[in-house]
Design a protein around this nucleic acid. Sequence first.
RNA 1: GGUCCUGUGGCCGAGUGGCUAGGCAGAGCUCUGCAAAAGCUUCUACAGCGGUUCGAAUCCGCUCGGGACCUCCA
Length: 500
Amino acid sequence: MPLKIYNSLTRQKEVFEPINAPYVGMYVCGPTVSGESHLGHARPFITFDVVYRYLLHKGYKVRYVRNITDAGHFEEEGKVAEDKIATKAILEKLEPMELVQKYTNLYHWAMTQFNNLPPSIEPTATGHIVEQIEMIKKIMADGYAYESNGSVYFDVVKYNDDYSKKNQPYGILSGRNIEEQLDTTRDLENQEEKKNKVDFALWKKAPIEHIMRWQSPWGEGFPGWHIECSAMATKYLGKQFDLHGGGMDLQFPHHECEIAQSTVCNHQMPARYWMHNNMITINGRKMGKSYNNVIKLSELFEGNHAELTQAYAPMTVRFFILQSQYRGTLDFSNEALQASEKALRRFMEGYEWLQAQSFSNDTVSKDEALATQLTTWVKELELFMDDDINTAKVVANLFEILPSINSLKDKHIAQDAVAGSVWNLVQTQLKVFVESILGLKVDKGANRQQLNGVVELLIEIRKQAKANKDFATSDKIRNQLAAMGIQLKDEKDGSMSYSF
RNA sequence: GGUCCUGUGGCCGAGUGGCUAGGCAGAGCUCUGCAAAAGCUUCUACAGCGGUUCGAAUCCGCUCGGGACCUCCA
């Protein structure tokens, strides 16, 4: 089965065919490091991490480029246009690059917590000013951009007129048409500098108070809102690459502008497949800066926020996100996170037990129906991933398989009910999908060796107490450990296990 | 105002024409010194109205509700 993905550009699921298989070029819009990442940001990074992992699983050689926006974007703050990062730097009395470094570090820390693989290249906007200026010059030379008062704007109307004839009008990705845009776009400052209301900035003249500024053919300034992604994607992935990802809220104007800029420069649609993840909502609303309803990742991990009744482990959050399909909205609630936490713990206990077993390939299934069912569930995992990365269905199948694993463990089903070869298949495939593709791992506390020793000792004492029918002592040990968050379980074979 | 998406059981969330999604919570049972865990069983659904169809949560229309984008936003 080939991999199919939903292409926002064509609004349908398409078979994924790389331009130069087995090589795949993939670009994902990264964070603006002017603040700390929040739960909403986690979704694209986890979603596209899974896409990346799955492409690798499929045998592709992937170059995954995810940028860091550290130049700050143009922002309307009162009447004065200022660089977002520069503005905050003044407030916090920090150097802009110190601020950038601080939030970049926090972002990397969060990515590690989520067990996201690092991208192949993580370029920064400030590191590619030259490339951006060159690209702007090229667009101007082709007549699709003009200078006005030290700033450079992209001529959207001219682009639309010319490229509509080539079946690539402005708005091709977002489904907007420019006539409506011209009527409905709100008034922004510097409108008088632009030929058309819909034109967007490629280069902005820096006001005096602006800290981040670079020399350019048009005077001192800073790059516009969208040019960095076009410049860096072109540099590292070529004029046309396979996959472009990002949040749905970037579809317009960011990705639309990227398409226009890159198409003028490179004479082709920059990416063939555009994937957009949907938003995480909270109380039915998109989580976003504009709504003042964000939960930062550090708050989430520490439980330090008014909306949170407890802390949630990074893996819980990852699992929560993977339990839904990436194209639908996902509603945050404590109840939902708690459900994910419990489900993940239950699954991982069974999963870890299974991974510790070894099975002989020589045995034959006594329960053919169950063996067939298990095999089917396992084989479906790949089909579900092939169908537009449907992690929700993958997770559902993991929970179809889990009761059989626990039944084997608790001897509810016989050791020889299912052939060893089938269990081997379940074991190896689960490892592939759970760890390599979904990127889930067991949250193990660092260096618990001493603690483990203590717990083992208490278990020994409790065993003796139980053997002597001294239930007062055995219950005391169990209850007090439980109060400290350590669960003891009496297993069927008389042994005891524990989990944190 | 324009463009588009969406409404599934207590909560989260799959599913796009006929087949139990799944998780969490609730109930019962098994196991068990008790408990927990686990297993088994089980109750709550497809916003409303109309249409198409042998058959619709799934397609079409209308009504009502929610949301996103149009401005930096994952």
